[in-house]
């Protein structure tokens, strides 16, 4: 059996009250309903994982799964999923290895060095599709911090950018 080589190295990073850590990803599936199949897909998912697919900009979770809208007609679903139940209704593509997921707590000021959306105004459960300077990411507000979904190949650069921003915030505070 081949070994699982993780996504990130060098985590967690803790600086004062700021913490950047990895979030282990469950199964991740990209669901894209075919023409006219949206309602059937929604029903099947409700039965399968107890989740109604959310509108754009929202992260929704049930006991077994979570999901957010990713692009027109496409959702990312987190959690074990019987894709057989969707056969013929939707494209169901395994994307469990395509992403890295980070959690940043106490670090909104650092994240605002890198992300242009209004982080302070994001209520818990809101999702923003934006960029970490020049890396495309999705930001999910969790209430006590933010989770970031980013493409796997950018993992090391993303952590470097965020850690640099965290250190910059600490260094800035020294001047007060």
């Amino acid at each position: 059996m081949l070994e699982d080589n993780g996504v990130f190295t060098g985590l967690p990073v803790e600086l004062g009250a700021m913490k950047l850590e990895e979030v282990a990803l469950p199964e991740v599936t990209l669901i894209a309903p075919f023409k006219g199949q949206m309602m059937l897909v929604a029903d099947a998912l409700k039965q399968n994982i107890g989740l109604i697919l959310p509108p754009a900009g929202q992260y929704r979770a049930s006991a077994r799964a979570g999901a957010y809208w990713r692009s027109p007609g496409q959702w990312l679903v987190f959690g074990a999923l019987d894709t057989g139940a969707l056969k013929g209704m939707a494209a169901a593509v395994d994307m469990s290895d395509a992403f890295g997921r980070l959690r940043l707590t106490g670090g909104r000021e650092a994240l605002a060095r890198l992300v242009e959306v209004d982080l302070e105004a994001m209520p818990p459960g809101q999702v923003a599709h934006t960029a970490l300077v020049d890396i495309g990411i999705s930001v999910i507000a969790t209430g006590d911090g933010f989770e970031l979904m980013l493409p796997r190949s950018y993992a090391a650069s993303a952590v470097r950018r965020i850690e640099t921003a965290m250190r910059g915030v600490v260094a800035r505070r020294l001047v007060e």
């Binding site: 894209a32 007609g73 994307m95 395509a98």
Partner: peptide
């Protein structure tokens, strides 16, 4: 897919990072 031929029933997924 979105603008030229929206009548076609096709979904496009970029799985480059998955593999």
């Amino acid at each position: 897919a979105q603008l030229r031929w929206p009548e076609l029933d096709v979904q496009i997924v970029d799985a480059s990072e998955q593999w």
